[in-house]
């Protein structure tokens, strides 16, 4: 389980973030004393840090700059400021991503999992049961049989795979697709899912994706 350190001075927001992240299966730590945030960041064993820019004692950008000198824990900046300059600065100080408030919770979770995935040091080939997921060729391989997926199908499969055994709502799938510049409508999503099912059954696993009425989909 990955742990996330939340550094946000608005208490309500910080608590809600922590609830959101815990529901999504992360462990959370919250900074509540803003006197010496830097040492708390350094002492924490978190896998990822959510850092607000406007903090009472020391600005998040300054903190990030100091923190980066010695540490490479991924950091996502959170801000309510809407100026390009902040984004440029944060990224140049070594932030891994930058999200403006009020963020869409689904997107926040997607970005977190993307950053964690990028920073995972040992990227092993991903396997779903005995199916090899080849991101390079965008295909699924089982027993020497290969099925090439379209970009959308691959995105859908990956999200279901990341949440294997859990229900993923259509809404979450949609947000993820749109976040990748694929502006599908409801029908197109159904079409993509049935094509993906078709390809999975061609590989000999016809019931991999289950439909849960009014809830979403589940990869067994």
């Amino acid at each position: 389980m990955n742990t996330i350190l939340i550094i946000e001075d608005d208490r309500t927001l910080s608590e809600e973030l922590s609830i959101l992240l815990e529901k999504a299966g992360y462990g959370t730590e919250r900074v509540t004393d803003f006197k010496d945030v830097l040492s708390q960041m350094e002492e924490s064993a978190a896998d990822l840090i959510l850092l607000d820019i406007s903090l009472p004692e020391e600005n998040g950008e300054v903190l990030l700059q100091k923190f980066r000198k010695e540490n490479d824990t991924p950091v996502i900046m959170l801000t309510s400021r809407t100026e390009d300059l902040d984004e440029v600065l944060s990224m140049s100080y070594g932030a891994d991503d930058y999200i403006t408030k009020p963020y869409n919770p689904t997107i926040l979770l997607l970005r977190i999992s993307a950053v964690l995935k990028r920073s995972a040091k040992n990227v092993q080939t991903q396997m779903y049961q005995d199916v090899k997921i080849s991101l390079v060729s965008g295909s699924l391989i089982r027993n020497g049989m290969e099925q090439v997926l379209t970009k959308n199908e691959m995105l859908i499969f990956q999200i279901l795979f990341e949440h294997q055994g859990e229900i993923v709502s259509r809404d979450e799938l949609m947000t993820a697709l749109w976040d990748n510049d694929e502006f599908l409508n409801d029908n197109a999503l159904s079409v993509n899912i049935s094509r993906l099912r078709g390809k999975l059954s061609a590989l000999g696993i016809p019931d991999a994706i289950e439909t849960r009425k009014k809830q979403g989909y589940l990869l067994k």
Binding site: D10, L13, L17, L20, S80, K101, P102, Y103, N104
Partner: peptide, 8 residues
């Protein structure tokens, strides 16, 4: 900030 909290 409160809008963000309410969203969450």
């Amino acid at each position: 900030i409160p809008v963000a909290s309410l969203r969450l």
